[in-house]
Design a protein around this nucleic acid. Structure first.
Length: 490
RNA sequence: GGGGCUAUCGUCUAGGGGUCAGGACACCGCCCUUUCACGGCGGUAACACGGGUUCAAAUCCCGUUAGCCCUACCA
C-alpha cells in the first residue's frame, strides 16, 4: 500500500449510536490502526429533520466510550469545531463545496435539472408499477418523460439528477464480497440534489452524492461500510468517474442480525450502545465481541482454536485484522458470548483497570474507601459476569441488610450456632490469615463445620446465603460492622 | 415485481474435491468446593433442498427455497 491508509465512519445523527454502526466503526478503526493510517469520524447530517447537536453528541460519547478514537473529525463538546486537515466534518458545513461540484457536473452536461413535481413522479411511478414494472426515471416505461432532454423551466425550483450510464455492467470490486456486477439498466438517473428553495438554486444534496465528494476530498482510501450500501456503490462509481476521481477500495461488511435472525431492532432489547454500557459491560469486551462477528482472526494462517486465543487484546486484534478473513454473510448477535468475554476480561483485569469502569455502578460511599479496601472488594467480586453483578455482590459492604432470606435464616440460624456467632465478635485480627485462624479455632471449640458458621455469618452480614469468600466478607464489613450486624441474632 | 448479497452444530465459525466435518460460546453430566460462582474433565449437536461434473462433492457448476439489502427529493 503506497499511500497512507485513511478510513472513515460516517454515521447520521438519528438519536442513538447503533451497535451495528459501532461494529462498522470498529472495522474502520482496526483497519486504520493496523496500517498506521488515519481514522476519520464524519457526521452525515444532510437529513435536516433528524440532525441535532444533541444527536451528534450522542455519537461522540458512544464512540468515546467504546474506545474508538478518531484522528480527524468533530471535537467533542464543541459543535461546529473540528480537528484534521480535511474539515469540516459535518456535511451541512460543506455545502459550498457540494454546490460547486454540482455546478461543475451541470456545466459538463453530466447532470441535469429535473422539474418534475413529486406528485407527477408519484403518478408515473404508480402507472409503471401497475403495469408490473419497476419505476425508473426516464427509463423503461417512463422513457421520454424525463427532463433530461427538455429545456427546464427556469422560473421553477428544480432538483438535480445524475445522468447514469445506460449500457453494460457496473462492476464493484469489493474486498469482502469479491467482484459483483450490476446491470446498468437496473439503475436510473438518481437525484443528486433536492429541490432548491428558489428557482435556479441548488438544494441540499443527497447521501449518494455527498459520500463521493467527501470520501474523495477527505482522501479516504478504504471505504469500509455496512453491506446495505453495496447496492449504492454502483450509483456512486459512475459519479466518481464523472468527476475524474480515483476510486477508493471498497469493503462491505455484513450486517448484524438479532438472535432470531431478523434485523437487529428495538424489539431485540438493545440496539443502542449506551444500553450495553448500562448492562455493566467493559468496552473492551464489546469491542472483542463485535470484532468477532464476521471476522475470524488467523494466527499464522490458522483460525483461533481455544478459549484462550479467542480472548484477543486490542493490540492483537489490530495486528491480526485482515479484511480477507471477514465473512460474507450476516451474523447473529450472540449475547451469551459477549457475556462470557466480559466475564473473562473482568477476571483478568487488575483492580486498577476495573475501578474506573466499576465506579459508576457503585454508591457514592465508594469514593471515600481506601485503596486497599477497594482492591480487596474488587478482587472478591471479580468472578461476576458483569460490572452490575459486581456492584450487586458488593452491596453488603456499604450497608447492613434490611431484609433476610427466610429459608436461609431457617436453615442456618440454628440455636446451636449462636454461641459460635457470639464469639466471632471477639475476632480481632482482621487479616485473611488472622480471621482464618480465629475462625477455625471457633469451629473446633464448638464442633462445627466450616459451612455451618460461614453460612450463618453470611445471613447475618448480608441477609442471604451468598457472598464472596467468608473471610473477604468479614474484612469488607469490618470488625465494628460485623459486631453490629451480629447483634440481632444473639 | 426488478437488481444485488448470503446459506456448516442452537449461536459465532474452521475446513474450498478423499477429514471420525475441527474449535469457541451456550446447553447437559461428573469432579472440586465455606455459599454463589470460578476452575478441571467429559458429552449431545451441523454441511438448506434438488439436479449435475467426478472414481470421489460440505467443498466445483446449475437450479430451487429461505433470509437480508437496494429499488426515496432517508442515510
Amino acid at each position: 500500500m503506497s499511500q497512507k491508509v485513511i478510513t472513515r465512519f460516517a454515521p447520521s445523527p438519528t438519536g442513538m449510536l447503533h451497535i451495528g454502526g459501532v461494529r462498522t466503526a470498529l472495522f474502520c478503526w482496526l483497519f486504520a490502526r493496523k496500517h498506521g493510517g488515519t481514522f476519520i469520524l464524519r457526521i452525515e447530517d444532510t437529513d435536516l429533520s433528524r440532525s441535532t447537536d444533541d444527536n451528534i453528541r450522542i455519537i461522540e460519547e458512544g464512540m468515546a466510550w467504546c474506545g474508538l478514537d478518531w484522528d480527524e473529525g468533530p471535537i467533542v463538546g464543541d459543535p461546529g469545531q473540528w480537528k484534521g486537515p480535511h474539515g469540516p466534518y459535518r456535511q451541512m458545513q460543506r455545502m459550498d463545496l457540494y454546490k460547486s461540484k454540482i455546478q461543475e457536473l451541470l456545466d459538463k452536461g453530466l447532470a441535469y435539472r429535473c422539474r418534475c413535481s413529486r406528485e407527477a413522479l408519484d403518478e408515473r411511478r404508480k402507472a409503471v408499477e401497475a403495469a408490473g414494472k419497476v419505476f425508473q426515471y426516464n427509463r423503461g416505461l417512463d422513457a421520454g418523460k424525463g427532463c433530461a432532454d427538455a429545456h427546464h423551466d427556469a422560473s421553477r425550483p428544480c432538483a438535480i439528477r445524475f445522468r447514469m450510464p445506460v449500457d453494460g455492467d457496473i462492476v464493484v470490486d469489493d474486498l469482502i464480497k469479491g467482484e459483483t456486477r450490476f446491470p446498468a439498466e437496473s439503475l436510473d438517473d438518481w437525484i443528486l440534489a433536492r429541490t432548491g428553495d428558489a428557482p435556479g438554486e441548488i438544494g441540499v444534496p443527497t447521501y449518494n452524492f455527498c459520500v463521493v465528494v467527501d470520501d474523495t476530498h477527505m482522501a479516504v482510501t478504504h471505504v469500509i461500510r455496512g453491506d446495505d450500501h453495496l447496492n449504492n456503490t454502483p450509483k456512486q462509481i459512475p459519479l466518481f468517474r464523472a468527476f475524474g476521481y480515483e476510486l477508493p477500495a471498497f469493503a462491505h461488511v455484513p450486517m448484524i442480525l438479532g438472535a432470531d435472525g431478523a434485523k437487529l431492532s428495538k424489539r431485540h432489547g438493545a440496539t443502542s450502545i449506551t444500553e450495553y454500557q448500562a448492562m455493566g459491560l467493559l468496552p473492551s469486551a464489546v469491542r472483542l465481541a463485535l470484532a468477532r462477528l464476521s471476522w475470524t482472526p488467523k494466527i499464522d494462517g490458522r483460525a483461533v482454536e481455544s478459549a484462550e486465543e479467542e480472548l484477543l487484546t486490542d493490540d492483537q486484534m489490530i495486528q491480526l485484522f485482515d479484511l480477507a478473513d471477514c465473512q460474507k454473510s450476516a451474523a447473529r448477535f450472540d449475547m451469551d458470548k459477549l457475556n462470557w468475554m466480559n466475564q473473562k476480561l473482568i477476571q483478568r483485569a487488575t483492580w486498577q483497570e476495573l475501578e474506573p469502569h466499576l465506579r459508576p455502578f457503585l454508591p457514592a460511599a465508594w469514593a471515600e474507601k481506601p485503596d486497599a479496601w477497594k482492591a480487596l472488594a474488587i478482587q472478591a467480586t471479580q468472578k461476576g459476569k458483569s460490572l452490575t453483578d459486581m456492584a450487586e455482590a458488593l452491596r453488603f459492604a456499604f450497608a447492613p441488610p434490611t431484609t433476610f432470606d427466610e429459608k436461609a435464616v431457617e436453615k442456618f440460624m440454628t440455636p446451636a450456632i449462636k454461641p459460635a456467632l457470639a464469639e466471632v465478635r471477639g475476632l480481632a485480627d482482621y487479616t485473611h490469615a488472622g480471621l482464618e485462624a480465629g475462625f477455625n479455632a471457633i469451629l473446633a471449640k464448638h464442633g462445627l463445620k466450616t459451612k455451618d458458621l460461614a453460612q450463618a455469618l453470611r445471613v447475618a452480614l448480608c441477609g442471604k446465603p451468598v457472598s464472596p469468600g467468608i473471610f473477604d466478607t468479614l474484612m469488607l464489613v469490618g470488625r465494628e460492622g460485623v459486631a453490629a450486624r451480629l447483634e440481632r441474632w444473639l
